[in-house]
Design a protein around this nucleic acid. Structure first.
Lengths: 332, 332
DNA sequence: TTGAAAGCGCTAACAT
DNA sequence: ATGTTAGCGCTTTCAA
């Protein structure tokens, strides 16, 4: 691939490969003159180390893998951006994979990445239980979970916000603003994000002694279609909520479309809040009140944690909790 | 990393490494029984090939690199998604890099990726001229350009839409709808996307003999800030255009915000069309009439082209032109 | 300070 | 059908 090897420039300078290698790595004693000559020759020949060979020898490839359910989801795109940035700073490279929300694909990708000898893995996993992943444990590549925490992954490294607390606070704020009839559309209970946000919501209502109709709480998937569908279901009820909490951006968008179709005004007829409903365009009206995960930071911290763990393999189990952002919009 | 090696399972079965290797690869004759035994042992031991070693030996790493200006831009996120999908199908892995619109960073990343012995590269380059990249030519990793075509990259493989034709058609459509006073905000003339879209715009006006004021055509960058700023400049003019073409989504969003601030209605006071102004939320009103690059397809075709070129290194220079999509919105 | 040699884990002649 | 051997390009003891 890269035609010129260490051996080539060694021969050119009448040196041994090892000397050239040392001159480049900076480790080990090498004469000043020799080093200069080597550096020159390297520059001229356009030599570039073959990282595959180095990785084999060093038994570490300096790359990290990341698997997300959907790269084109702006949240994950930002996570990836943050992760890549941090990787680059550390001289690592980021291998990005899309599981398409399919745990079979996810496992296959995991397999591939481990074959590639990744130094570490960032997983926005869609598997329900970590036990499926357990077979990969003996391998020394550390794993950091983000976003969804599979059941049984509690003792593992992770980076996330406190979803339960965030949902609780948001709900309390809604109550404080005078909304007492609040509904929620959340994601699958098999995903911790879906489950915890619901828990926080219910906790807040419970604390304030607000009776909540089960019919106002719906569990779908984290998609626009689901948000739309579940919102319509709620709107069919004879007694409707006066406010809604949506567990992510897609659900919010779908639901808002349903509200619009019904001719309901926000917040006049229905107040709305959501998770991660960032408006990148500035054109969405009303601006949705939203608790937002610091996506890019999640990515960069995840990689940092990985780097940490590679130096300190024994200290797994760090749970990094990041503070979410808050946009006080016009939708409530 | 992966503790169990070919040698381990060879010893376990009293076979040679090569036999085990053959049993796994399927190439070369191996006894039926032996193969079965090997497969069993592999399954039980959790053996996973060390791809680094294989890559070194095979002199090909089965990975492709992609460098984009901004991963979190939804267009590039989709490109990456498409590229990754195609990679996975082919048993490749995608290394994703963010240049941050910085050509120095881009070069550095290029360097890193080539060290990693990538089989090929997809470049949404921000360098103005390909000559900067020319030093990497002798290396056998093929390159496919997408989005922006650097000066001098004409003879290279690429995947894109016909930006000039698309802008021309869109402009003609605007003229057909009766708008004759049309302005445009485009991206840097150093980027082919910015330049070609402007060319197409001007060509259409020229063909129809519509005089166009230079003041109505502004060149900024592909950002919301730029769109906002340039739109405000245009609105300051004593004689304003009646319609606008925005060269990408960000420019469009920024400009629309400027229009809104001025209290101008779209399309009542100002008709609007754009490139790539997809509305992923369904909440943007009015829906922007938009010519859209098939982002995911661009990614997958780019990887396909790369795969092609790896088999046929001599046939470089294929320009794949994809058809853009069209959303007939309410903004004109 | 420099060189010789071993070996990372794998594949592919070549030999048996 | 299976084993032996060499070698991919690099780093790293160990000698000189």
């Amino acid at each position: 691939m890269n035609a010129v090897r260490l051996e080539d420039i060694a021969r050119e300078l009448n040196l041994s490969v090892s000397t050239v290698s040392r001159a480049l790595s900076g480790k080990g004693r090498v004469g000043e003159k020799t080093r200069a000559r080597v550096l020159d020759a390297v520059r001229e020949s356009g030599y570039r180390v073959n990282d595959v060979a180095r990785s084999l020898r060093m038994r570490t490839a300096k790359n990290v893998g990341i698997i997300v359910p959907d790269i084109s989801n702006s949240f994950f795109a930002s996570v990836i951006k943050g992760a890549q940035q941090r990787c680059r700073q550390a001289g690592y490279v980021l291998i990005v994979c899309n599981s398409d929300e399919d745990s079979t694909v996810e496992e296959e990708l995991l397999h591939t990445l481990l074959s590639k000898q990744v130094s570490g893995l960032v997983l926005a996993s869609v598997v329900e239980s970590r036990s499926i992943l357990a077979q990969y444990d003996p391998l020394k590549a550390p794993i950091v979970y983000i976003d969804n925490m599979p059941q049984g992954a509690e003792g593992y490294d992770s980076v996330a916000i406190d979803n339960r607390a965030a949902a609780r606070r948001l709900t309390l704020s809604m109550l404080d603003r005078g909304y007492s009839e609040i509904g929620m559309i959340t994601g699958p209970s098999s995903q911790s994000t879906g489950a915890l946000r619901r828990q926080g919501f219910e906790a807040a209502l419970g604390e304030r002694g607000v009776a909540h109709s089960e019919a106002w709480i719906r569990t779908g998937s984290f998609t626009m279609e689901s948000g739309y569908r579940e919102m319509r279901e709620i709107l069919k009820l004879s007694r409707r909520p006066r406010a809604m909490l949506f567990a992510n951006n897609y659900i919010a968008y779908g639901a808002m479309n349903a509200l619009r179709e019904e001719g309901l005004s926000v917040p006049g007829d229905m107040a709305v809040t959501a998770f991660d409903a960032l408006d990148l365009t500035g054109l969405i009206a009303p601006l949705i009140t939203s608790v937002n995960q610091p996506a890019q930071q999640i990515g960069s911290r995840a990689v940092e944690l990985l780097l940490d763990r590679m130096r300190n393999p024994d200290q797994a189990g760090t749970r990094v909790i990041l503070e979410p952002g808050f946009v006080d919009g016009d939708s409530w």
